[in-house]
Design a protein around this nucleic acid. Structure first.
Length: 680
DNA sequence: TTAGGGTTAG
């Protein structure tokens, strides 16, 4: 019933502009769309009648249509409403042609339209095409049914997909695979995995497509036998050498945190591609293994693989986690030089990388230049400001979120509350805690932790305790930990002991609260109780995490451990610290030994203090960098009170900015002051 | 016809 002439001709037809028809069905479809485009007043096409004539030898790869017709154009064919459709036979959209009965679509046309809907996630139009097919000769066509199934599954309507699947008169391996991948991609892993034994039972063998989807689902959960069975299955049938299955396998192990196995699979892959690299790099990035990530990134470049935005995201995440500003900048420059990657895809990770590496200025710059901001962009920059103690700026940005009519989420509010907490904005914190409920977001445990922290720091210890008692959920160790920290700060022994006991019940193996409690006792002069806590730690095998600091010099990260004698430059480092120490004592620094184990004598305590890892890192950085340069140090626990005081004086004596990132926040030391205003 | 990789908090 095709009414198109099977010949070539190009014409100008009234308001529809240039119209070309040809014998190729696909081409005909495109030509009609081209006409439709003119008819609806969309941007005119950028070619003329003359180059249209040249297109008689039309090649899809070089056709002048390329770049003119967008996916959206093809989708227009799926609008069934007649309101914007001319009755002129030349101007009808393809689907209207179908509607009029003047065009009997072939299977290919239906499948192409379904695929477009799938690609563009246009569920409504997909349903319309489904309805068409139901009243056509292809109602029970198994291949078309798979296309429809795929459309529902990828558009996220798993209920419609499952319903169609259940009713399909004939299912094949592709039908099973499509449904499995639908569940897997919608993060409904258990439903995806549950289909596997069923399909096997009915005699359908999975192929490489099925296995990739199943492995993805498996990687979403905890390490288990099902995933290993899938691995065995892939090996048995030789699918492990397929690059998709292989990459999914290594990704599964990487998500489980089993990097050794992931690496073995990666190495065994004969045909690696960029996805294989990305999966491995992402695995190391998730574990915070920055050095591994940088090494792999360089390797992939050397081997001629072009990084994608997935790669860059992982690399920036790794730089953020290790706080490697120089490396992060180097990779950023690489992105710009390579020119291929739109910054929009990696902008959020860039903001986070700069904020976490201590350069909030660069984070702000990237944020301001983002063409498209989503809630993750806002959260990243707000959280950045919060961590740097720039509470007022963070709150200003949050107001902009509301003004821009972007819907804040639970992370936005957590960042806002953290900003209040780190800047001592008590009333504002209370206000935003209530506001989040008005936005329909129920505060989770983490939000409660932040409020306890906020109240506790402000010295409102009883109020904080009451707040915990009234929590709608069971308080976790973190909630009591926030109270305990505040008790240490405000020297409230009774409440501190109470909070510590709660923590020991919930999380007996964490060393942090033990140390805090022991220090609370010690500062109250109750040395025997303090000793008992230490004894308890020893007996129950609770170990204090060794304190480490890192400093990045010329693209290389150097690690320092307290009282470490093994460093090749230890003597120079120690001499340098003694020099700094002497100078800062001259302008008022007094070592505060209350931060060192109480059972040492005063002199020992002072010696111990001198070799705290952050002091060693600072001395090393002073030795290795030119005067005036900002020094950035990262620490794995919170900076101690004595180092905090010493660094304030040191920033004055050295005439440099010193930025310390501890587990809680950033401290910018400059001209003898710290950005946290001693409030941390 | 069907498949695999990234980002914000604590």
């Amino acid at each position: 019933m095709v009414m198109f002439p099977h010949c070539y001709f190009n014409r100008c037809i009234g308001k529809y502009g240039l119209l070309a028809l040809s014998h190729s069905k696909l081409k005909t479809l495109r030509c009609f769309l081209f006409a439709a485009k003119y008819g609806t007043g969309l941007a005119p096409c950028a070619f003329t009648e003359s180059n249209m004539a040249e297109s008689q030898d039309w090649n899809p790869a070089t056709a002048p249509f390329t770049g003119v017709l967008q996916d959206e154009d093809l989708l227009r064919t799926t609008h069934i409403s007649s309101s914007d459709v001319s009755s002129s036979s030349t101007g009808l959209y393809v689907l209207d042609l179908i509607n009029c009965g003047s065009l009997e679509p072939e299977r290919t046309l239906y499948s192409k339209m379904l695929n477009k809907c799938t690609y563009l996630r246009k569920l409504k139009q997909g349903r319309a095409i489904h309805a068409h097919i139901q009243s056509s000769a292809f109602e029970n066509d198994p291949v078309l049914l798979n296309f429809i199934l795929n459309m529902y599954a990828k558009c996220g309507s798993l209920e419609e997909a499952q319903d169609l699947f259940d009713k399909m008169p004939t299912k094949d391996r592709v039908s099973w695979t499509v449904l499995i991948s639908g569940y897997s991609q919608s993060r409904r892993a258990s439903e995806a995995l549950a289909l596997f034994p069923k399909m096997l039972h009915l005699g359908f063998q999975p192929n490489e497509f099925t296995l990739s989807s199943l492995l993805k689902a498996s990687g979403a959960g905890p390490s288990d036998d099902h995933g290993r069975q899938l691995h065995a299955f892939s090996l048995k049938y030789g699918y492990d050498m397929n690059v998709h299955v292989g990459s999914s396998l290594l990704d599964m192990y990487a998500r489980w945190g089993h990097m050794r196995e992931a690496k073995v699979i990666f190495k065994s892959l004969a045909a690696k591609n960029v996805v294989s690299w990305n999966a491995l790099i992402a695995g190391h990035a998730r574990k915070g293994e920055g050095e591994h990530v940088m090494r792999l990134f360089s390797q992939m470049l050397r081997q001629g693989f072009e990084p994608t935005h997935f790669t860059y995201s992982s690399v920036f995440t790794a730089c953020a986690s290790s706080g490697s500003l120089e490396q992060g900048k180097w990779v950023h420059a690489h992105v710009i030089k390579s020119g291929g990657q739109p910054i929009a895809y990696i902008g959020n990770t860039l903001i986070d990388m700069y904020a976490k590496s201590g350069s909030i200025k660069d984070a702000k710059k990237v944020f301001q230049r983002l063409v498209k901001r989503d809630i993750v962009s806002w959260n990243s920059i707000i959280s950045g400001y919060a961590q740097h103690g720039l509470g007022a700026e963070a709150l200003q940005l949050f107001e902009q979120v509301l003004k821009a009519k972007v819907q804040p989420n639970e992370i936005t509010f957590l960042s806002v509350l953290t900003a209040c907490s780190h800047s001592g904005l008590l009333d504002e914190g209370k206000y935003y805690f209530e506001l989040m409920k008005k936005h329909g977001i129920e505060p989770q445990v983490a939000h409660h932790v932040t409020v306890v922290d906020l109240l506790g720091r402000a010295g409102r210890l009883n109020e904080a305790n009451k707040f915990i008692e009234e929590m709608p959920m069971e308080p976790t160790a973190a909630v009591w930990g926030a109270l305990l920290g505040a008790c240490r700060m405000h020297k409230n022994m009774d409440l501190g002991v109470y909070a510590a006991e709660k923590i020991f019940e919930l999380d007996p193996h964490d060393s942090g609260p033990h140390v805090l409690l022991s220090n609370i006792y010690a500062s109250a002069g109750r040395l025997r109780d303090a000793g008992n806590v230490r004894k308890m730690m020893k007996e129950s095998g609770v170990k204090k995490e060794p304190a480490c600091s890192w400093v990045e010099i010329e693209n290389e990260v150097h690690m320092f451990v307290a009282n470490d004698d093994s460093h090749p430059m230890r003597e120079e480092i120690q001499r340098m610290w003694e020099k700094i120490s002497g100078k800062i004592k001259e302008i008022g620094y007094v070592p505060d030994t209350s931060h060192v184990l109480f059972f040492m004598d005063q002199q020992d305590r002072e010696v111990k203090l001198q070799y705290h890892s952050e002091k060693l890192a600072l001395a090393f950085a002073v030795l290795k960098t030119p005067p005036g340069l900002t020094i950035r140090i990262k620490k794995n626990i919170r900076i101690c009170g004595d180092c905090h005081s010493a660094f304030k004086f040191a920033s004055k004596v050295l005439g440099r900015e010193i930025i310390v990132r501890d587990t809680n926040r950033f401290h910018h030391f400059l001209h003898g002051m710290c950005s946290c205003r001693d409030y941390w």
